[in-house]
């Protein structure tokens, strides 16, 4: 589970971009690019986790008292199945993480997956908000670099023509 933590303290974020030189700006931009990449990766991972939880939730929905005794094909490996019958339609065993599995009744399992989906979705939203903010800062830095470069070019022109 990736709870997001950004290293710099929010209090010291006030930097006047125009006071930085080109080198510092480039460094800052690179740092932001890296952070944005991390966000993208995290979002991707979270999306996968979200889909897994949604799928599991849907599977639980399919287990009802009537399905008792019904035969199903149980996957032993990804490509091998054995026939089996559903003996217990009241409980399922859920992977709660770090190698622990807990037995839960159907309602509990539904609730578990609902909670997990909600948690993951919340994390994704948080990252998205952070990502948008960082993108804005990045744009500001890019603009500042552009301006500085232009100013530098102009200064050079002026000095060569004089």
């Amino acid at each position: 589970m990736a709870t997001v933590s950004t290293a710099p303290a929010p209090g010291m974020h006030q930097i006047d971009l125009s006071k930085l030189n080109l080198n510092q700006l480039a460094q800052l931009k690179q740092q932001l690019d890296q952070e944005l990449n991390v966000f993208q990766d995290s979002l991707q991972t979270l999306k996968i986790a979200q889909r897994k939880f949604v799928e599991s939730g849907e599977s639980v929905e399919k287990i009802k008292p009537e399905t008792k005794g019904r035969s199903i094909m149980v996957p032993l490996t990804g490509s091998m199945y054995v026939p089996g019958t559903i003996a217990d339609t009241d409980n399922v065993i859920i992977d709660v993480g770090t190698g622990y599995y807990a037995q839960k009744d159907i309602e509990g399992a539904k609730d578990y997956f609902k909670r997990k989906v909600k948690f993951v979705t919340e994390q994704m939203e948080k990252i998205q908000v952070l990502g948008i903010e960082k993108t804005k800062v990045r744009e500001a830095i890019c603009m500042m670099i552009e301006m500085k470069l232009q100013a530098q070019a102009q200064a050079q022109k002026a000095s060569t023509s004089s």
């Binding site: 589970m1 990736a2 709870t3 933590s5 065993i93 992977d95 709660v96 993480g97 770090t98 190698g99 622990y100 599995y101 807990a102 037995q103 839960k104 578990y112």
Partner: peptide, 28 residues
């Protein structure tokens, strides 16, 4: 390590939510 801690936190919460007589298994 942070990730591991977070995962363990989630597991702990989940274990706390379980009823006393729930069955718990460990993957070995």
């Amino acid at each position: 390590l942070d990730g591991q801690l977070n995962e363990n936190k989630a597991v702990k919460e989940e274990l706390m939510l379980l009823k006393k007589d729930s069955e718990v298994y460990k993957l070995i």
